[in-house]
């Protein structure tokens, strides 16, 4: 069965980030032989004075294909993991969404989009989770991380929100590479210009300092821009990707 796992608000200003914990949890799932995990995506929530986030208010989500009989074990492990690994003073939340048979996908997506626009109380998150039958739990502090954890699954479900965690180290003899080679070496599934045009597999791209992909149309998408001076494609800068 396919599930989404999302965590939020696990860190404090001096601790490891939530993204690192999400990757550790994904690795745990694979190490236990419960299933295989997809790369982690980062989803930005609303930044507002009434929200007690640490410094950026982002949630981290990944998909996993698991043996259905292991869901209970996996959920118990994830809960214990958050209790053990979350930083002191944090307000961690955990959401696990079984996608097979989930009929209220639209409600979850609407909630995710809403969390980027307005302040939401955690009671609203719990009410939705109960109604649609997904796991939502808090593991310390005020527990407000449940809002981002639930919202993060909705945003991942849109297929059009967030950046993938980490950056790619692409082996190449120069700083130039083709989309085909990028897709061979990484989890990138498509290379597109900022205007949405898909690059031909044999076009030339000049690699920037940090090469990162975003979630677009449900795919790990590498965005590039046309450099008129060099008449070439370049991978997008962090500045360009911060809106994703």
């Amino acid at each position: 069965m396919k599930i989404l796992v999302c965590i939020d608000d696990t860190d404090n200003i001096d601790s490891r980030g939530t993204g690192e914990l999400a990757s550790m949890l994904a690795a745990d799932i694979e190490d236990h032989g419960w299933g295989t995990c997809e790369p982690v995506t980062r989803h930005q929530m609303l930044v507002h004075p009434d929200i007690a986030y640490t410094s950026h208010n982002s949630a981290m989500c990944f998909g996993a294909e698991i043996d259905e009989s292991r869901l209970g074990e996996l959920t118990a492990h994830a809960r214990e993991f958050l209790v053990r690994e979350s930083a002191s003073g944090s307000d961690p939340g955990l959401c696990i969404v079984p996608l097979d048979g989930l009929s209220e996908t639209d409600d979850l997506i609407t909630f995710g989009k809403k969390a980027k626009q307005v302040v939401i109380a955690k009671e609203e998150a719990y009410a939705l989770a109960e109604r649609i039958g997904v796991h939502l739990s808090e593991h310390g502090g005020t527990g407000i991380g449940v809002i981002g954890a639930l919202a993060g699954t909705g945003l991942r479900l849109t297929g059009n929100d967030g950046r993938f965690r980490g950056h790619f180290k692409i082996e190449t003899e120069s700083d130039q590479v083709t989309p085909a080679e990028i897709m061979r070496q990484t989890h990138v599934e498509v290379v597109k210009s900022l205007d949405g045009d898909v690059l031909n597999e044999n076009e030339t791209i000049v690699l920037g300092k940090k090469v990162k992909s975003v979630l677009q149309d449900g795919k790990s998408t590498l965005l590039v821009y046309n450099d008129p001076e060099g008449d070439c494609w370049r991978t997008c800068t962090k500045q360009q990707l911060k809106v994703y």
Binding site: R16, R42, T54, S55
Partner: peptide, 25 residues
């Protein structure tokens, strides 16, 4: 420097990439 995933400036040493910045609206 903050976690790489939270850095938004291409210049590594920038307050925009600092662990001790807290974004406001």
């Amino acid at each position: 420097a903050d976690d790489e995933d939270e850095c938004v400036s291409d210049e590594p040493r920038s307050c925009y990439n600092c662990r001790y910045r807290r974004w406001t609206a």
